[in-house]
Amino acid sequence: MRHMIKAVGSLALGGLLLGQPALAQSPKVDPATVEAAVKGVFGHAPAEWQQRIVQDETQKACSLYRNQPPADVATAITERETKNVVLPADGKLLGDWKSGEKIAQSGYGGRHTDDPKLPLGGNCYACHQLSKSELSFGTMGPSLLEYGKIRKYGADDAKAAYIKIYNAQAVFPCSNMPRLGHNKHLNEQQIKDLVALLFDQESPVNK
């Protein structure tokens, strides 16, 4: 919900301050200076690791506007990121919610000391409430309690959830949520399992 408020807020601001720079824009600093500093602190890391922090257009825009892009930039982000979404070829969106719960609980993976051969987690509970039984949940994202139930287990809503998990920025420009599929952190099956966690009637999310 916070993402939505933020996105709506920035759109409204964009309308009010037409033609003016966004309020939250970073102070003047030569981007080359920033990138030189980044090189200085991460330049010794393996090339593959350095590649991970080369910014794409969306990361650049969200950094520049501090996650509150003006309307035209916000539209450009959602349009670009929507094109980047890859839906499952078999058309199936719901996997196994039990596997989804494990993925939601685990924050493993992606850190430079993590074993890349071990399964990666989605770390969903770090930011979201999902089930009534798990009390250790974060609040950076909205509560997802009864997510599927509230939406009457609608197929379109499940598809929207898949897209949101695959690429949050296709839905809310400069969302704080990682683009878990787009950035190749989670694979197709893992995202299906998470969608099942949200949309299976037997899932603890809907109990």
Binding site: V29, R52, I53, M140, R179
Partner: peptide
């Protein structure tokens, strides 16, 4: 200080995070 501020808001990596995310 200005450089630090820019770094604080610089998003990147596999999770698109900056310091500001949290």
């Amino acid at each position: 200080v200005v450089l630090g501020e820019a770094l604080f808001f610089r998003r990147g990596g596999q999770w698109d995070f900056s310091c500001a995310t949290c």
